[in-house]
């Protein structure tokens, strides 16, 4: 395996990772499932391509710097998600999930039918600006921002919404607002991932952002473990690389991919990380919880025994 090949897979994993981290906030920490995040990736990809593609290419772009494409693609996805959220965030659990599925497909079909952006034939002339280094930096920033957010009062409020919505409300948490913010942040992440994806492939087509892509993102989040950033990172790496490593199996590779996912989910029902974090403080927390459980058990046992002696 050549380094360029490995680097290519890592870049793809890194791009997926950004979208997965965003979805992880929405699904893993706020408890809202989405099957439409490929739609936000599509918006990021197309807006990004439009901003950075040369005015001379067909379809024509604005020929602006890559950094503006990243900001513009992320912002566009965030703005669209705000309107989608206004309509659908009042829906309960499964119904919200189905609404996102509809929105995701609708966004894809709009791009399929708008000839200005190349329609179903796609958009060929996207400049290849996504380098290994840029994606690496973006991933580090994405992870740090998310980790900081999750450990703040805002992150805790989102977790509270996931855990027990009514109790969160009674605790003074504006549930709708936190769901909305979580959705917007996840859409911005997906949009930025879309920009990197477009500038990595140099060619985009609505087909790339189908329901399969949305499902893949959600699978990675669940596979990595809901409520774990390390899980999302590992999941994105493993599940993007796996189909490539399985190329030796030729036509059977997707069967093996499916089997591998099932196997891991059966053996680890809470995902790879199961809500834990692979950081010093994350490990300390798990140990403290185990310790507390052991202590509580001995304490209760001692109480019960002394109660019998009375």
């Amino acid at each position: 395996m050549s380094w360029t090949y490995i680097q290519g897979i890592l870049m793809l994993a890194g791009i997926n990772m950004i979208a997965v981290l965003g979805l992880s906030l929405l699904t893993g920490f706020t408890g809202l499932f989405s099957f439409g995040h490929a739609g936000f990736m599509a918006i990021g990809a197309y807006v990004g391509a439009w901003i950075s593609a040369s005015p001379a290419s067909t379809p024509a772009g604005l020929g602006l710097p890559f950094i503006l494409a990243i900001v513009g693609g992320g912002a566009a996805a965030g703005i669209v998600s705000y309107f989608i959220g206004r309509i659908s965030l009042n829906l309960k659990g499964d119904y919200f999930c189905i609404a996102t599925l509809g929105f995701g497909e609708a966004i894809r079909l709009i791009f399929n039918n708008v000839n200005r952006f190349g329609g179903a034939r796609g958009w060929p002339g996207v400049p290849g600006r996504s380098t290994f280094l840029v994606i690496l930096i973006a991933d580090v920033i994405a992870i740090l921002f998310l980790a900081n957010l999750v450990k703040s009062r805002h992150g805790r409020n989102m977790i509270a919404v996931r855990e027990e919505e009514l109790a969160a409300q009674i605790a003074g948490i504006n549930v709708f607002r936190y769901k909305m913010i979580s959705l917007i942040i996840s859409a911005v992440y997906a949009g930025v991932a879309g920009v990197f994806f477009a500038h990595y492939m140099t060619f985009i087509q609505p087909k790339m952002f189908s329901l399969t892509k949305s499902t893949e993102l959600t699978i990675i989040v669940i596979f990595g473990g809901l409520g774990s950033i390390s899980g999302s990172v590992l999941g994105a790496l493993v599940l993007t690389a796996l189909p490539e490593l399985l190329r030796a199996f030729e036509i059977w590779r997707l069967v093996f991919y499916g089997a591998a996912v099932i196997l891991i989910m059966v053996s680890r029902p809470k995902g790879l990380m199961g809500g834990m974090e692979l950081t010093p403080s994350g490990i300390r927390k798990v140990l403290a919880e185990r310790n507390a459980l052991r202590e509580a058990k001995t304490k209760l046992l001692a109480d019960a025994q002394s109660g019998e002696e009375d």
């Binding site: 703040s152 009062r153 805002h154 409020n157 027990e164 109790a167 003074g172 913010i181």
Partner: peptide, 23 residues
């Protein structure tokens, strides 16, 4: 309760009104 959170995290979450820092 927030069942999967620790005792401390349950209380810490509810303390959020005492802070005002932004996103």
């Amino acid at each position: 309760l927030f069942k999967n959170l620790t005792v401390f995290e349950n209380v810490l979450t509810a303390c959020h009104m005492n802070a005002s820092y932004s996103f």
